[in-house]
Structures are given as C-alpha cells and as structure tokens.
C-alpha cells in the first residue's frame, strides 16, 4: 500500500508534464489541423534555456520559466510563419514537414551543446521531500504538479475570460464563421502557436528537475503527448487534462506493476480499446461537419 501511494506523486508529475506538452498540441491540432512533430524540440529548447541560465543568479531556475516560454514560443511563431502557414489543410504533410524540422533542430542542438546529456542543478529548495501520512512527497515532483496546475488555470482564464482567448475558441469551433465575423484568424493562429510552443518550453524547464537534458529529450515525450491528444479529443482543455491524468497514472502504475517494456504495450492496447468506445476521444466539439 505504501509503495502504491508513493507512486502517486510520480504518476501525477508524469501527467503534469504530459499535460503541459499536450496543451499546445491539442490546440494547434484542433484549431489548425497541424500535427507538429517539432513540438518535442520546443521542450528541448526550454530545457537547454534552463541549462544556459543556471548559475547566473540564485533564482535562475525561476527566471528560466518565463524565458523558456518566450524562447520556445518565438521558435513556434517562426515555424508557423515561415513554413506551416503554407500547409494548412494538409495535416499529414505538416506532420512530415515538422518532422524534417525536428531532425534539423536536434542536430543543431547536438552541434551547439554536444551529443552527451547535460545536467541542470535543481535549486536547493527543491531538493528533498516531505512525508505526509506515510507518503513520500518529493519537492521537485510537487513543484511540477503545482506548475502544471498554474498553467492550466492560466490557459483556462485565457480561454474563457479574455477576448483574445474567446476569439481562439471561436476559430477552433468554426473557422469560417469566425473569419466572417471579423476575427483575424491568421493572427489568432500565430498566437495559438506562440502559446502552445511556450508551454512546451515551460515543460522542458520542468523536466530538468527529474532528468538530464539531451538533444533527443523531446522525442521521449512527443508520442505520449500525442496519445493524450488522441484520447482526450481535439482542441479543448478538459479532455486534455483528463487524458493526461489517465495516461500519466497508467504509465506510472503499469511500469510499477509489470515492467517498463510491457507497460508501453499495455498503454497502447488500452488506448485502442478506449477508441472502440469513443473513437473521437473523451470530448468531442459539437459541430455540423460530417465526421
């Protein structure tokens, strides 16, 4: 029982990271039909930002969070503006295109930072943990969970309270109608990309707390994050949150009960089984298009 409970913060923090990564994917996928394989490299960019900033000041880890958001966000913006813009309406081509970009970015990281992994030293106040009712709660995992909760609340406020976020939801639900109503859909697209990529950068900083940083960091998470998008349904917050939680726990506990190699296969089988019941994920945006 104790071991089972100790797995809880691990499962939750996996879910938190997956969520941060999947948020950007689900909105770019849902809103623009873009499957961004280079999203993983924005995670990597965030992680390397934390690596570069460490040691400047005592609080450089906290500073890295907004800086990584901006760095990864601008990379996303540049990608959208330079390439993806030309590919709207061709989702499968964007997948291959962004994979090409991802290859180039990984090699670039290898040339700049070297192929071996680097380590980001966690700030002192995140080392150690606390015991609560016999459950070990490591500070670094708790920090990741809190960070993800803050980001989700932020995205929720943005989507529901701010005019810019409402415009974004309008474009997700019906692009043409939104356009006819006077929303500059192109600008909304670019901003969505900035936001989603920025969150991936934040996830990258968070990941430095639990592991080393390497050029292929993003590739470890991108597939699971896409599965969150598939299981959660496109383009909305609650599906992504629930699916990330489900996948995080499934991963965390299955690895604990069986072994890591069987866990991935079982997760895959679980998702295929789930799609038999809900082929379009947990939540479906209601529309009049034929699906």
């Amino acid at each position: 029982m104790g071991a089972l409970a100790n797995q809880l913060p691990i499962g939750l923090s996996i879910a938190a990271v997956l969520l941060l990564i999947a948020l950007g994917l689900t909105f770019t996928f849902g809103q623009m039909g873009v499957i961004n394989m280079a999203h993983g490299e924005f995670i990597m960019a965030g992680a390397y930002t934390a690596y570069l900033l460490q040691g400047f000041t005592s609080q450089s880890f906290l500073i890295a969070l907004p800086v990584a958001f901006v760095v990864a966000g601008l990379m996303g913006l540049l990608l959208e503006w330079s390439l993806i813009r030309r590919f709207y309406g061709r989702p499968l081509d964007t997948l291959l295109l962004t994979w090409g970009v991802s290859l180039v970015l990984q090699q670039l990281a290898r040339d700049i930072f070297g192929a071996p992994n680097v380590q980001v030293t966690a700030p002192g106040w995140l080392v150690g943990g606390v015991d609560l009712l016999g459950v070990r709660l490591p500070y670094n995992r708790m920090f990741i969970i809190v960070l993800a909760v803050l980001c989700v609340v932020g995205v929720w406020v943005y989507l529901t309270k701010l005019p810019q976020g409402r415009r974004m939801r309008a474009v997700v639900q019906n692009r043409e109608l939104a356009g006819y109503s006077g929303i500059a859909t192109g600008r909304v697209d670019r901003f969505t990309f900035l936001l989603g990529s920025g969150l991936a950068g934040v996830a990258g900083v968070a990941l430095t707390l639990v592991g080393p940083v390497g050029p292929s960091l993003g590739t470890f998470y991108i597939v699971d994050a896409f599965l969150v998008v598939v299981a959660g349904g496109l383009g909305q917050l609650r599906g992504a949150v629930l699916a990330a939680l489900a996948l995080g726990f499934l991963n965390g506990y299955l690895e604990f009960w069986t072994d890591a190699s069987l866990a991935k296969v079982l997760v895959f089988v679980a998702i295929i089984a789930f799609l038999q019941v809900r082929p379009q994920g947990m939540f479906v945006l209601k529309g009049r298009t034929l699906v």
């Binding site: 039909g33 499968l92 597939v223 890591a260 190699s261």
Partner: peptide, 27 residues
Amino acid sequence: RQRVRGAYFAILSQALAAAFVILLVGQ
C-alpha cells in the same frame, strides 16, 4: 472500423512503433 483516420491513424501507428521497440529492448 471506428472511423479513426488521417492524423489519428498516423499517431497511433507511431505509438505502435514506439511501444514495439521498447518491448524488444526490454525482453
């Protein structure tokens, strides 16, 4: 049969590749 198609199918087939390799390495 569930009309999962396009990008969804692509992602699932990729997830299969990921799981398969992890299984091979693990066993």
